[in-house]
Amino acid sequence: MVMEIKFDKVTADYQLGPIRSPRVLESVDLLLETGSFTAVIGHTGSGKSSLLKAMNGLLLPREGKITVGDSVIESEKSKKAFKKVRKQVGMVFQFPESQLFAETIEQDICFGPLNFGVPLKEAKEIALHALEQVGLDPGIRYKSPFSLSGGQKRRVAIAGILAMRPEVLVLDEPGAGLDPKGKSEIMSLITSWHNDNQLTTVLVTHDMEDVATYAEDVIVMNKGKIVVHDRVRNLFANQNVVEKWGLDVPEARRMQLMIERETGVTLPSVCLTTDELADALMEVGLV
């Protein structure tokens, strides 16, 4: 199934009370290929979240059009396309646990599938499966979601999205506010889901380690525009670009740069993780 996401000169505004913030997205052109894993980075207010919302028809373009698979989102009139797009694009918002509402965990997870016309019996089976997928004991499904801990709530919320069987997964800082262990568990969960189902995944994050560890491509946003769209390794290899947009680099890369400066030896490759750095250091014989 081809699930490309394509932005064609998309400009969008955002209205909040009497104040209108113009151009949260400004003539954005973008092509995300089927099966790609893309991280979106950039400073606060650079339009990362708006970009995600636009993929789901929650933020409508004022100019230009967005193509998801074979549906086109153009304006308010594309209403028919919304339902299809929202079924195909599973969106995990920031702090998704704040959207839990049902009496039992099972009901909450079934909410999405039921809205998209899945029969109740099948939805329950999906819910059971989704709970296992996010690493929770299916035995808790009749409990209230509000009785869970923060990390568990987030897993339930993510299960609620996965249960919709989306072909595109869009996540806004899924690890925010969790302890390191909970965070890495959620991230590896997303990665394995991505690999098993050949999803197109888009991830907004502030954490360069996440970018380096999980993503293949990276988008850098600044003032509503996409300023860089490249392979992760290419971005971190180019120190000029990194500095130009005020980005952090992963720990291992920073260490590599420091070692290179101190010893004058240039390592053969750009190292993004500790393992890569260790290998490279052994290769040149520094350890």
Binding site: L58, R86, F93, S98, Q99, I161, M164
Partner: peptide, 10 residues
Amino acid sequence: KVMDAQRARG
């Protein structure tokens, strides 16, 4: 925010 989140769930 909540409305958006639930709209995303159909």
